[in-house]
């Protein structure tokens, strides 16, 4: 059974239909790279999966929970579906460790000591043990993004949504973040990434999704799709960005 199942999802912002019937199945352990031009609906799709955006029709079931159901407890859903953003969105008034500890203490009612132990563990995983007590303003973009990843991991999500998480970084900082994501992929974390890092999508992804005009235009095994894109749109896209 798939961990995330997306069925014919349609979403409009006013008269502008951004998702025109998207269907996608994501199994446990999949590393899905969603690529496409800006405006093709990639980020909107991702944001629909954890309920940050609503959709007008179709269905998304994540970890057995229907996202847009009438009685859906979005809180319960989001405990299992983490998200990392392009702009990091660390809370500036809290240290790295406090950023990581906040949700476990507030949402899961874990003790401060236990939360701090978890924070130490996940910050070590992203290579930032020595920055636990630093404030976001004292960290580089790459470090901030790694704290943001650690913050999501502290909730032990079953799926991690990554929305262009390297797009706001200076080029020399991109790799330190990608290495962390690659490590997560190797450990079996289910990842859905909207990304412009084509090489990463090809080398780390288990599934490639090319979105075009609000639809899944082409999907498959990344290496195969990149080697032989079937549609002219993807051929052109790969030619431009690769």
């Amino acid at each position: 059974m798939s961990l995330v199942s997306i069925r014919d999802v349609r979403k409009s912002f006013g008269p502008n239909e951004v998702l025109k019937g998207v269907s996608l199945d994501i199994a446990k352990g999949d590393v899905v790279a969603i690529i496409g031009r800006s405006g093709s609906g990639k980020s909107t799709l991702l944001r629909c999966i954890n309920g940050l955006e609503t959709y007008q029709s179709g269905s998304i079931v994540a970890d057995g929970i229907e996202v847009a159901g009438a009685n859906t407890n979005l809180r319960e859903l989001r405990r299992h579906v983490g998200m990392v953003f392009q702009q990091f969105n660390l809370f500036p008034h809290l240290t790295a460790a406090e950023n990581v500890m906040l949700a476990p203490t507030v949402v899961n009612k874990v003790s401060k000591a236990e939360a701090r132990a978890t924070a130490a563990e996940v910050l070590a995983k992203v290579g930032l043990s020595e920055k636990m007590d630093a404030y976001p303003s004292e960290l580089s973009g790459g470090q901030q993004q790694r704290v943001a990843i650690a913050r999501s991991l502290a909730m032990r999500p079953k799926v991690l949504l990554c929305d262009e998480i390297t797009s706001a970084l200076d080029p020399e900082l991109v790799n330190e973040v990608l290495r962390v994501v690659e490590q997560l992929a190797r450990e079996g974390m289910t990842l859905i990434l909207v990304t412009h890092e084509m090489r990463f999508a090809r080398d780390v992804g288990t599934k490639l999704v090319f979105m075009h005009h609000g639809k899944v235009h082409e999907e498959g095994v990344p290496k195969e799709v990149f080697a032989a894109p079937r549609t002219p749109e993807l051929q052109q896209f790969v030619g431009q960005v690769g």
Binding site: R78, F85, Q87, V107, M155
Partner: peptide, 13 residues
């Protein structure tokens, strides 16, 4: 920033 609110909501708060 709206992103901070979304980050909090995404953490199940």
């Amino acid at each position: 920033p709206k992103g901070h609110i979304e980050a909090g909501l995404s953490l199940a708060m």
